[in-house]
Design a protein around this nucleic acid. Structure first.
Lengths: 349, 349
DNA sequence: TTGAAAGCGCTAACAA
DNA sequence: TTGTTAGCGCTTTCAA
């Protein structure tokens, strides 16, 4: 275990391999890219030279010469949210199946970092790009698309000039609200609505539809929040705790699990019983929200499926650019009932 | 919003920019890489041409010509484990500070995928590579290093010929065991030991040290498991549930949070009270383990700091290859006491 | 300060 | 089946 490294000699090139194997440069290239064009004996000899030299082809040169890459970039708004990680998993699985690689850039909720990675993949001439975008901006994606980059937007905003894959947020909101209604709640509150964020608007709309189906037996109000993290939930929780029980909502649809966590935390601390007095349903089935002492009912998003679908769309577009028509795929979420919305007539724990 | 894309004309090159701006190719390159060498008027003219054309430099060509890249690859064994995600976050933050980019390859616990990504970054001639490796293999990393690739191993195995950053697992095991002893436990069990996995051996050794300090007042036994996921914990839990209370361990150090989750789940379901009868401490502070109804005490790993340290080591090595001496950095974990190990004389909830 | 030209390592078309 | 060669788009001398 000596400290001395091998001298940093430049890595061997194809020319080195060719010399060593006593063949022409093009033959080495063929051994790598079209082995069937090379006689078995030659192939073996070249392969030996490759192994002996530890030759690793230079991808930059390959991309430059061939003008194509096998790398797909995935720009992800927030890897800590397991919904997005599921997408990445799905994308990688599908890409691998089709002989491509996925590299992940984590925007970490920052618009500048999203821009940085979009730009990076653009400069690298990635075959194509998947983006789970920051909610507050389309422009970077639009700009890259205008420059001819192939981009599929996952969980983004519709109406863009390209393929996209989304979850059915209207249905998710509907499922959550209907579940609360079915478990006996009559005064619903949707927390986390925000005009201008289509996903949240859709969820609120779905909740409204479920309420409308009751023909007035159930009422719904909306509460905006600036963001959808736990701290914003706590703020809402504090408000609710001051309301008299008779006027307080008895069913809450939160726009995210973390929001739900915050609300529940404060309610419980204030002596309001969840789910007996107030039922709460979150959104995302975020693993980071499983923190809560009380398991949170939630609407699980089809993350893995979305990643797979997006990758398929992208590869389809890359492989037949002329016949390709942009598509907009919508996948369905799934209600996951847990403790936080258990029926009021049941005694939890 | 027409379906018609812009015709897929090839992206503009530096030559196009040069022509449009009426300057030479090299001048455009200088505007991008050494603006101070170009007269202001020329610079502005070139910049205008760049903007008008929507020129994005081709990184493959740049890497090829310059022989250097600004991209760092990070091969991560399991992104779903928030410990590793924290490392990625740390690495990105530090890399960004130093003008580099980090791209993530998720091995997803599979050795072949780790190999694929190592190879990919090698082919791309990434400036350097960070690896949080799969526990069962060094060889791929060793091989790449032998070929002269600069690699820093994070949370890996020591004794490798290069820089590395690790958490102090011995200390972690010590902290967990001492905490249990201080909260009144006398018969400790370390679950998840496995010979051949240094991190786990170290934690067990730390636990042993804490017990040794009691001069016989506390005893420790070890229980191996094949893996450290929740299912393996459940198996152990079932065994413990059949043991009479007087002979059962009253303090458990689990090698992972998920292991702890599984153990606790079965114990509670079997009527064994946690933490009153058995105190449990997990390891990792994994967000995915916050699922548990009972918040798990744990040893939190310094993930972010490890990512930062690893990136610093890598960049230091890249920037001064000759004077560089490999280093092995060890960072300290931190005990996070929660419900699962609350003192026996306290009545939880 | 700007321009011209020689590669960087590879692919692919064509010749032998 | 194998060899030859012209680029791919950029950086980087070296001259002008």
């Amino acid at each position: 275990m000596t400290q001395q490294d091998f001298p940093a000699s430049p890595p061997p090139t194809m020319a080195d391999v060719a010399t060593r194997a006593g063949v022409a440069l093009g033959t080495v290239s063929n051994v790598l890219n079209a082995p069937e064009k090379v006689a078995e004996a030659t192939r073996a000899r070249v392969q030996r030279a490759i192994d002996e030299l530890g030759f690793v082809p230079n991808r930059a040169a390959r991309v430059l010469a061939a003008g194509t890459s096998t790398t797909i970039g995935f720009v992800i708004v927030d890897l800590a949210n397991s919904f997005f990680l599921d997408m990445a998993r799905g994308a990688e699985r599908e890409a691998e199946r089709q002989g491509m690689n996925v590299l992940i850039g984590d925007s970490d909720l920052r618009i500048e970092k999203q821009r940085t990675y979009l730009r990076l993949f653009d400069e690298e001439r990635a075959a194509g790009v998947l983006v789970a975008p920051h909610p507050d901006t389309d422009e970077d994606v639009d700009r890259a698309r205008a420059r001819g980059r192939r981009i599929v937007v996952v969980n983004g905003h519709s109406g863009l000039a390209g393929c996209s894959v989304d979850a059915d947020n209207e249905l998710g909101g509907y499922l959550a609200a209907r579940h609360l209604i079915e478990t006996g709640r009559r005064r619903l509150l949707f927390v986390g609505s925000r005009t201008g964020v289509p996903a949240l608007e859709d969820r609120a709309r779905g909740a409204r539809r479920a309420v409308a189906e009751t023909n007035g037996a159930v009422v719904l109000s909306l509460r905006e929040t600036s963001r959808v993290r736990a701290e914003h939930g706590r703020e809402v929780g504090r408000e609710l705790a001051t309301v008299s029980a008779g006027r307080r909502p008895d069913g809450i649809v939160a726009a995210s699990d973390l929001l739900a966590v915050g609300i529940i935390e404060v309610l419980l601390a204030s002596g309001v019983s969840v789910p007996a007095e107030v039922g709460v349903v979150g959104y995302d089935d975020n693993r980071a929200a499983w923190d809560s002492a009380l398991p949170i009912s939630t609407v699980a998003q089809p993350g893995t499926e979305m990643g797979i679908a997006a990758t398929r769309l992208l590869l389809e577009e890359l492989r037949s650019p002329q016949t390709h028509r942009h598509r907009h795929i919508v996948l369905e979420p799934r209600l996951v009932p847990r403790e936080s919305s258990a029926p009021a007539n049941r005694h939890p724990r």
